[in-house]
Design a protein around this nucleic acid. Structure first.
Lengths: 192, 192
DNA sequence: TAAAAAACTTAATCACGGTTAAGAAAATCA
DNA sequence: TGATTTTCTTAACCGTGATTAAGTTTTTTA
């Protein structure tokens, strides 16, 4: 399990056997059942989770009580609330397992020490964050430049694996429209 | 000029006199007049720009020929196309000065060497990117959870400095609606 | 300082996608 | 396997904000 994380890190920076042992002493490995909460609104987020197996989502509660999907994360992705994590402020987010998960997490209260001991992790997370930021801006572009229907088709074409794994209503929210509208799109596809 | 960058970096990591000299040998300092392009669609983005003075914007061209604002950047912000930067792929973006600018840039073809010589910059950019990513997700939340009118008021309340500096039509695009609709909002405010 | 370009405003029309509500299908649990 | 919850579908109605087009104001340039 831990090896998955090591392999992922090694795609970006070197990490020898000794360093792997150091890393291991700083992380927490856990199995979490489907629909469990890792973080709830109002709590300060102290962890950054790496997904070895499974699927996480983060969402906010809107004024009308609906859930607005913020992010999905699957194998080999990190998920946290960086805003809460960084400022030690209560989070606006819920982070929840969508499937049974195998997770590895780093606690921000020991992360600094870990970064001092394994400075190459600064680089690793810099590169991870660079990708995350680019992806987030790309998603904003889709929001701006594509219609809801086009966004669905785009997502469908580019991330078919997701379509199988997450309920349609979560996907609709993630793409910025209602489940009812998604049904409309799907009915249109079935017609043709 | 260069000192502004040093001061900004020192908010996050240490940088002694000797290291400052190393850094200086890797950056390019330039003055750029208003409305000049730093990057145009189709070019590979090789620089990351730090704004000492002035304002930059990045935008994409939509199918209908309209410009979709992606980001604004003012003093002490970095701007680049990380996607193009990282993958050495042609950019979808235009990056343009909105005002006369004083800029400092790092070229990605020498950046690796710089990071080796000043590893604390890995940390600096990690922290910058963490903030950028958090801000980008926050902006997505505003897109999802607020109406166009609410987005305008929110922006108005939280970033009044921007309102003075950028043309309304750029702001409208940044917030995801038309200049015509922004006029409608402003007329409504004037009424009350 | 006049001419041209850029930026902003107004108003009529209209389409996309939200809301509401009820029901059907699928998955989960006892 | 039946009961319950979760997820998805259908359809009628409606409102927000886009589109279009013309005109006005402000800024820039020669």
């Amino acid at each position: 399990m831990f090896d998955n994380l090591v392999r992922h890190i090694q795609k970006f920076v070197a990490l020898n056997a000794e360093e792997q042992i150091i890393l291991k002493s700083y992380v927490k490995i856990e199995s979490v059942k489907k629909k469990q909460f890792l973080l709830e609104e109002g709590q300060v987020c102290h962890a950054n989770w790496f997904i070895v197996k499974g699927c996480l989502r983060s969402y906010t509660l809107k004024e009308n009580g609906n859930k607005q999907m913020v992010q999905f994360a699957i194998e080999n992705w990190w998920l946290t609330d960086y805003f809460s994590f960084e400022n030690k402020k209560p989070s606006q987010l819920f982070i929840q397992t969508v499937e049974d998960c195998e997770l590895i997490s780093i606690d921000d209260r020991t992360a600094e020490e870990l970064f001092v001991r394994l400075p190459q992790l600064e680089r690793y997370f810099r590169l991870i964050l660079q990708k995350s930021f680019a992806a987030s801006l790309m998603r904003l572009q889709y929001m701006f430049n594509l219609s809801p229907e086009e966004r669905f088709h785009h997502f469908n074409d580019n991330f078919p694996a997701f379509i199988q794994r997450v309920p349609q209503y979560m996907l609709a929210s993630y793409l910025g429209f209602t489940p009812e509208f998604l049904s409309k799109i799907r009915a249109k596809i079935a017609d043709s």
